[in-house]
C-alpha cells in the first residue's frame, strides 16, 4: 500500500497543484467580471480619476526614463548592426517598429506593475487584514466596486496612454543616439519612422496595452483582496507575500500574453 502511495503521490501532488491553479484562474475571471460590471456605477468617476492620477500620471516619470534609455540603447545597437548591412538609413523604422509593436507595451506594463501594481496589492491587502474591507461590507459598500473596479478602469485608461508616451520618448531616445551621436541624418530618421510604422502596428500595440492593463490590475487586486485566505502566512507577512506574488505573476503573464496576442495579430 505504502509503495503504491509513493508511486502515486507525485501525481496526486501535481493534480492538486493543477486543480488549485484552475480554481484560482476561475476565481480570478469571476472576480474580474464582477468588478468590471461595476465600472459604470454612477459614483465611480471621482475614484477612477484619482486612480488614473496614481497609476497613470505618477508613473510618467519612470516611463520617461525607461523609454528614453531603451530608445537610446536600441538606437546604438541597431545603428551598429544596420551599418554592417549598409542600411543605417532605416534605423528610424527599426527603432519605431520595435518600440510600437513590442517593447513599448511590454516594458510599460512591467514598469507600471512594479510601481503601481505592487502598491495596489499591498494597499488592498492591508485593508483586508485590518478589517477595512469588512467595514465596507457592513456599510453596504461593495468592496469590489469601491476598491477594485476603479483600479481596473484606471489601468485600462492609463496603460495605452503611457505606452504611447513610452513609444514617443523611445523614438526620441533612438534619435539622440542615432542622429546626435552617430551622425545619421535627422530627416532620414524621421522619414523612416513615418513611413515604416503603419496604423496596424500602433493598433496592435494598444491592444496589447489594454490586455496587459486588465491582467495586471486583475492579478494585483485579486492577490491583495484575498490576502487573508493565504495558507502560507498571516498578517503583515501575508501582505508581503501577496505583493510579491502579484508582481511575479503579472510579469510572467505579461510575457505569455504578449506572445499569444502577437501570434493572433500577425
Amino acid at each position: 500500500m505504502d509503495k503504491q502511495m509513493s508511486y502515486t503521490s507525485p501525481v496526486t501532488s501535481l493534480g492538486r497543484i493543477a486543480l488549485r491553479w484552475v480554481n484560482e484562474l476561475g476565481a480570478m475571471v469571476l472576480f474580474l467580471l464582477r468588478a468590471f460590471r461595476m465600472v459604470f456605477h454612477p459614483k465611480q468617476l471621482p475614484t477612477i480619476i484619482q486612480q488614473v492620477y496614481f497609476i497613470g500620471a505618477r508613473s510618467a516619470v519612470i516611463v520617461t526614463f525607461v523609454g528614453l534609455f531603451t530608445g537610446m540603447v536600441m538606437g546604438l545597437q541597431l545603428f551598429h548592426t544596420l551599418v554592417k548591412f549598409g542600411s543605417a538609413g532605416v534605423l528610424g523604422t527599426a527603432v519605431a517598429l520595435s518600440l510600437v509593436r513590442e517593447l513599448g507595451p511590454v516594458l510599460t506594463a512591467i514598469m507600471i506593475t512594479a510601481r503601481a501594481g505592487s502598491s495596489m496589492a499591498a494597499e488592498i491587502g492591508i485593508q483586508r487584514i485590518s478589517e477595512q474591507i469588512d467595514a465596507l461590507e457592513t456599510m453596504r459598500i461593495d468592496p469590489l466596486r469601491y476598491l477594485v473596479s476603479p483600479r481596473i478602469a484606471a489601468s485600462i485608461i492609463s496603460f495605452p496612454l503611457l505606452t504611447a508616451f513610452f513609444d514617443l520618448i523611445g523614438i526620441l531616445g533612438g534619435f539622440i543616439t542615432g542622429v546626435m551621436l552617430m551622425g545619421l541624418n535627422a530627416g532620414t530618421y524621421f522619414y523612416h519612422v513615418r513611413t515604416g510604422v503603419e496604423m496596424e502596428d500602433i493598433t496592435g500595440g494598444f491592444v496589447k496595452a489594454v490586455v496587459f492593463a486588465v491582467l495586471v490590475s486583475m492579478i494585483c487586486c485579486f492577490q491583495g483582496f484575498y490576502t487573508h485566505l493565504r495558507r502560507d502566512s498571516y498578517g503583515a507577512k501575508a501582505v508581503g507575500l501577496s505583493t510579491t506574488s502579484a508582481v511575479v505573476i503579472s510579469c510572467v503573464l505579461i510575457l505569455v500574453a504578449d506572445y499569444v496576442v502577437t501570434s493572433l495579430l500577425l
Binding site: 485593508q127 477595512q132 469588512d134 457592513t138 453596504r140
Partner: peptide, 28 residues
C-alpha cells in the same frame, strides 16, 4: 439598516477623520 462599530475601529488610515465619517453617506 444595521451599522457596525468594529473592536479595532477599522478606520481607513489613508483618509482624514472627516472623510472617514462622510464615506458611508458619499457611497450609499
Amino acid at each position: 439598516q444595521i451599522s457596525y462599530m468594529f473592536q479595532n475601529n477599522a478606520l481607513f488610515d489613508s483618509m482624514t477623520v472627516f472623510e472617514n465619517i462622510a464615506l458611508p453617506l458619499r457611497q450609499t
